[in-house]
């Protein structure tokens, strides 16, 4: 019995992750009309995936991350598969990082990865001669996404703390 509980707990955490991702996707899809105003739109789902992979990698299997990335690609009208691959690779890198790094350092590292991911996507689109967004715009978007990261890291921490609290009271 004692070794089924962590599995159950991880499954529960995975459900929480999926729900959060769905919520963020719904938020990004809300018709608040920033679509054409030239505002940068942060990739909240990517932030969530990064924060989660760093804090609770056991409950975020690769397949789940990939599925989240793919659904986001399909819903947000991005090149299909490209966003999912970026998300998968970034979270794989983050998964291997040791825990307990100061938050500032973590933020810088995640921001670099997000920036690198955006540039890699641009590169792939360039190689395949696909319609390619303006480089400047992609960079601004990556920066805004990175700026949103602490917000989601906080949310993930809160969600995981609630989970832990529950466990202790049980």
């Amino acid at each position: 019995m004692s070794d089924t509980t962590p599995i159950l707990r991880h499954a529960f955490a995975a459900v929480v992750l999926t729900t959060l991702a769905a919520l963020l996707l719904a938020v990004s899809l809300m018709p608040l009309r920033p679509a054409t105003s030239g505002f940068a739109v942060p990739d909240l789902v990517l932030c969530l995936a990064c924060a989660w992979a760093l804090r609770h990698p056991q409950s975020a299997p690769m397949i789940l991350m990939f599925a989240i990335g793919l659904i986001a690609d399909l819903m947000l009208g991005r090149p299909v598969g490209l966003g999912a691959l970026t998300l998968l690779l970034i979270t794989e890198v983050l998964r291997r990082q040791p825990a307990g790094v100061p938050f500032l350092l973590e933020w810088v590292f995640v921001s670099l990865l997000i920036l690198l991911g955006s540039l890699a996507q641009l590169g792939v689109l360039m190689i395949t001669f696909a319609a390619r967004p303006d480089t400047m715009m992609v960079l601004i978007n990556a920066v805004v996404t990175a700026l949103c990261y602490p917000l989601l890291a906080g949310a993930v921490r809160a969600a995981l703390r609630i989970g832990r609290g529950r466990r202790q009271t049980e």
């Binding site: 397949i63 990939f66 009208g77 090149p79 691959l85």
Partner: peptide
């Protein structure tokens, strides 16, 4: 192995999107 498979899958999806856009649009 899983990572490799997922990477191949996403590359394949991207290639499909690039080559046969209408079909992927239908999936969307």
């Amino acid at each position: 192995v899983i990572l490799g498979l997922l990477i191949i899958l996403s590359v394949a999806l991207f290639a499909l999107w690039r080559i046969d856009n209408p079909r992927v649009e239908r999936l969307r």
